[in-house]
Design a protein around this nucleic acid. Sequence first.
DNA 1: GAAACGTGGTA
DNA 2: TTACCAAGTTT
Length: 356
Amino acid sequence: MRETAPARATELLEWYDRHARTMPWRVPPAARAQGEAPDPYRIWLSEVMLQQTTVAAVTQYFERFTARWPTVADLAAADDGDVMGEWAGLGYYARARNLLKCARAVVADHGGIFPADHAALLKLPGIGPYTAGAISAIAFDLPEVVVDGNVERVMARLHDIHTPLPAAKPELTAAAAALTPKARPGDYAQAVMDLGATICTPRSPACGICPWRAPCLARANGTAADLPRKIPKKAKPVRLGIAYVVQRADGAILLERREDRGLLGGMLGWPGSDWAEEAPAPAPPLDADWHVLSEEARHTFTHFHLRLAVHVAQVSTGANPERGAFMALPEFQPAQLPTVMRKVYDLSRGVLREMG
DNA sequence: GAAACGTGGTA
DNA sequence: TTACCAAGTTT
């Protein structure tokens, strides 16, 4: 093991001043130096969207949300279904449910003003240790230790830590705490994350142009690309199910709102079976002449692969389903469906056209 | 501590 | 095609 000089926050801040990425919610370092402060609502919204989600995916959702709901009070007053529909496609839908709960708590308990304090933020729905620190640091420039996946990777490499995650978390947090400066903590937090996203990347890190290449132990020892170590993930089982797509003669579509918990909770979807490793017996929502599509809808979730048989029927205007409710065509927006449900719809469109 | 919880991009 | 990965939180 070689020796290196310790890393310093100032080296990273100088790099950030020249290379900060542009994001719709971000106040760039030059503007911040002029005294411009970020909007805590926009920082909170972006941070919740960015949980386990890339900047590229978040940006368009962020623009739509803030155009439709410019303030936390606007969001708190929104219809639940509208918010879930706007979130559709972004994933981890508990975030959207907690987003609404949090907005309403900020209005009801904090006068519509986000608290700056880490402990107060942590009590709000959907805000955990990382997001509380990020809001406190970025929106209020408080010297919080902000540890996300980027920071864990950067610290593991800087100190050549081989302990696998998540056991390494306390060690990596301590390393991050030792580097967090009292000056410009908001810019510093964003700088480490930008570094992790653009230079100290998971695969093929660009060590040659890294502002911390001199102090980096993993760079010196040639281990950067192998860090951080992680516990291997379990294999995903396959689950099977049936989705029922029903169109009424007037064009209306049969949908149901899923329960406010668990997988895809609160989202619109097709009536259907449970999803299990055993193929389900058909249990259609109404009697009809069902057409079974030759192609299944395939989708992979966090912890299982899903194969959905798609059953399609056209019914008369007087049809009375046991489940779900008909939605008129102008109101039905496929973009408001979670991706797996949109895949089912896309497969059904050809048959629906033939029937209608 | 471990599992549940989405999706799209990339190798 | 498969597997890994991304600005985590909740139970």
